[in-house]
Structure formats: C-alpha cells, structure tokens
Design a protein around this nucleic acid. Structure first.
Lengths: 138, 138
DNA sequence: TTAATCCTTCCAGTCACTGGAAGGTCAAGC
DNA sequence: GCTTGACCTTCCAGTGACTGGAAGGATTAA
C-alpha cells in the first residue's frame, strides 16, 4: 500500500551518469526496443534496477567500438544466452572489422588523391588552381 | 508564339545520365539550393542547358572526394569567381583532409582494438568469449 | 514562495540522399 | 483510337543514431 520506492532502484538520470549514456539516449534505446521498458514510479518516472547500469555500459562499449545498433542487439542476445558459441560472437566482430577495413581503404584512397591535389596547388592569391581543375575536368 | 523547345536543352533524365548524378538527386540539389531552379517546358518538365552537365560533374567529383555539401557549395562559388585565390581552395581541401585524417586515426584505433579482441577469441562452440568479456567489464 | 533541477512527452533537425505512391505526358506499335 | 512503357511531376517517409528544444509536471532546498 505504501508503495515505497525500493532503495536499489535508480532514476534515468542516475543510470545515465553511472553508465555514461545520456538520459535522452536511454529513452531512445527504449523506443527502438534495444532496452526494455522499465518500471515506473507513481509519478511516472522511469525506475531501473542496478543491473541496468551494466547493460548500458555494455551497449556503450559496443557502440564505442563502432558496432551498429543491430549488432549491439545481437551481442546482447549472445551475452544473455548461456548456450551461445564464442564463434558466433567472433564472426560478428570479424564482419564489423571487415566493414572498418573497407572504410579505411576508401578513406586512404581519398586521402592520397586529396593530398596530391593539395600538393600541386600553389595556394597563393592567383586564381589558377589544380584542385578546381580536377573537379572541373576529371 | 510557337515556343519551340531549343534543341540544346536537356531533360532531367538526360543531364542525369550524362553527369552520372541520379535525377532524384538533382531534384534534391535543387531543393537545397545547391543547384538553381531550371527552366520549365510547357508540360512542367525541367529543362537544362548543356553547361548544367559540367556543373553536375563538378559536384559529383567533389562529393566522390568526400566533400560535404556545404564545401561543395563553397567550391562552386570559388569556381564561379574569377577573383578567387587558389589559397582559399587549398585551405578548404586541407581542412577536409584534416577531417579525413581524424577519421582514419579513429578507425585505425578501432581496428587495433577489435583485432586484438578477435585474436584472443577461440571462436569455437564454447560460450566463453573475450569479446563479450571486454564489452561487459571494460 | 520561489528557484533550480529533475522528470515526462512529443516534435523537429541532423546528413545526403533514396524509395515509393499517385498521377500527368509522350512516343511507338497495333 | 487504344494500350503500353518510359518518361516526367509532386509529396511523404525512411535511413542511423541520436540530439535539441518546447511545454509542462515533480521534487527538493533555501
């Protein structure tokens, strides 16, 4: 009846500051079902169990490693599943690495091209410019 | 009175195929004012001068080099301005290169971390996995 | 009582397109 | 004359992963 808030439950601001994930982002994760809907206090505030902080840290670390949300979702499922195989996790990480490698390759190419253009440009006050020439006549 | 369509004017499909920029994207560029509004035929079709193809190729090349639209807009202005200085163009390109370098650095770091995690994972059927351990306990 | 700091929801913006719906136009073939 | 297909038009919505802001309620401290 007295419906006391259990001392172990945390507000969104608390899990946010403890996990490093902004409250706004936590609500967003709930909206896209990456995080489950939490309990609510009588006043409508979200209330989270302590373990939620770990969950959010897991997500944050995965995001910091560049995994897209869809991968994070899979990683969470694997983490929850005691019958998982490490091979499945490894495959996911390898696929992500391959995507990063592709991006690195693309950016490296770009960098070479830009660097050669910049090197060939005198950079002075005259209007003639090999960079614009390249854009115009490539 | 007879309002003949000049033979040198092109439809959006024609400038699209000659420039390599999809018609949809050309309309989008018009919407964000990267491209000016073109003439219209009596039936409402967009009609472009031949020179538009060069303009679109310029944009496409700049986009392929990774310049954001705002930079492309500046590059077009510089290209149009006979009093430009090559130094301004060079500065823009260098700033873009710096952004690419930052991205490269970030991705390289990521790649190292992921690579070491993947290397440490046996990848077999057992559930124990250093990748998940890292996500959980980092 | 007031102010500050929480919390809530909902809407809009970021970036650069891209897909799709619903409909008008045009040329060719039967 | 009719149909078919390839154009063209506009408008709306979705992508990824948030982020900012408005408008308002709740709680706490001075």
């Amino acid at each position: 009846m007295s419906d006391p808030i259990q001392p172990s439950l945390l507000t969104i601001g608390e899990v946010a500051s403890e996990s490093g994930v902004p409250a706004k982002t936590i609500r967003y994760y709930e909206q896209i079902s990456l995080m489950p809907e939490p309990q609510r206090a009588a006043n409508g505030y979200r209330l989270y169990a302590r373990a939620t902080v770990e969950r959010l840290r897991f997500i944050k670390r995965a995001r910091d490693l560049g995994f897209p949300i869809s991968d994070v979702s899979e990683l969470l499922s694997l983490d929850d599943n005691p019958n998982r195989s490490a091979g499945d996790v490894r495959k996911l990480a390898q696929a992500h690495m391959a995507a990063i490698d592709a991006k690195l390759h693309e950016l490296t190419q770009l960098r070479h091209t830009l660097s050669s253009l910049v090197d060939r440009c005198h950079g002075g006050d005259r209007p003639d410019c090999p960079i614009l020439d390249d854009l115009t006549h490539h």
